[in-house]
């Protein structure tokens, strides 16, 4: 069943059951987002960027968690929406080593794109920058992980199916110290991380890179 939505000043028709974020993106309406993946059925809603205001709700909601089942009117550009988006971006930047020139994601980086869209610099505002130690985690046989680039969107975990059809990446630690980590056995004959590269390709910020031999 098609449902009609009002997004800002546009009318769009979407199939019932889609998420609001996907509906907008499919219609060429950009909403900042990092952790959302089209293929997975339930968005983790962890990056907290895809805020929108829906008529009748007093406070912004994340578009990835709204399932379209009736017509709604949506605003993507209100002061409250932008405030939360900028605040979330600043938080991410406050734990990010901003050295774009040295980063393989330079020019395709989601943080750069969102900052440009929100018309802010790559700066954490009034927050002090806090980085993790060590800067590189080289415990994986093929991959280097850069926790100070990582935005913990978890996409790498969700695409990795390389180990008996199970993911070999996980979140580890808690709070500020949460990181992505690999676990399990990595025998070169059973694991083909160097040829798969799914996690490296999906990483939106260049936090996972194949280690140069």
């Amino acid at each position: 069943m098609m449902i009609s939505l009002t997004i800002d000043d546009r009318q769009i028709q979407v199939a019932g059951g889609t998420s609001l974020l996907k509906a907008c993106l499919d219609s060429g309406i950009y909403i900042p987002h990092i952790c959302f993946m089209e293929e997975s059925d339930r968005s983790p809603a962890s990056c907290r960027l895809c805020w929108v205001e829906i008529e009748g709700h007093s406070w912004p909601v994340t578009a990835c968690t709204v399932t379209i089942d009736h017509p709604i009117a949506v605003k993507t550009d209100t002061p409250a929406v932008r405030h939360l988006q900028r605040s979330a971006l600043q938080l991410l930047l406050s734990v990010h080593r901003v050295e774009c020139k040295k980063c393989p994601a330079n020019r395709q980086c989601v943080l750069q794109n969102i900052a440009r869209f929100l018309e802010v610099g790559l700066k954490p505002g009034r927050l002090q920058r806090r980085l993790k130690e060590p800067d590189v985690d080289g415990s994986h046989p093929y991959l280097d992980h850069y926790p100070n680039r990582c935005v913990l969107c978890g996409k790498c975990i969700r695409v990795c199916r390389n180990h008996d059809n199970r993911t070999a990446l996980t979140f580890a630690g808690r709070g500020f110290h949460t990181v992505i980590r690999s676990f399990g056995r990595f025998d070169s004959d059973t694991v083909a991380c160097d040829s798969c590269r799914a996690c490296v390709e999906i990483c939106p910020v260049g936090a996972l890179v194949i280690r140069e031999a």
């Binding site: 983790p44 990056c47 734990v95 913990l152 808690r174 500020f176």
Partner: peptide, 13 residues
């Protein structure tokens, strides 16, 4: 739990 931006980083600040 470290999942979402505001809680993970915001509470640290």
């Amino acid at each position: 739990c470290g999942k979402c931006t505001f809680c993970r980083i915001g509470t640290h600040h």
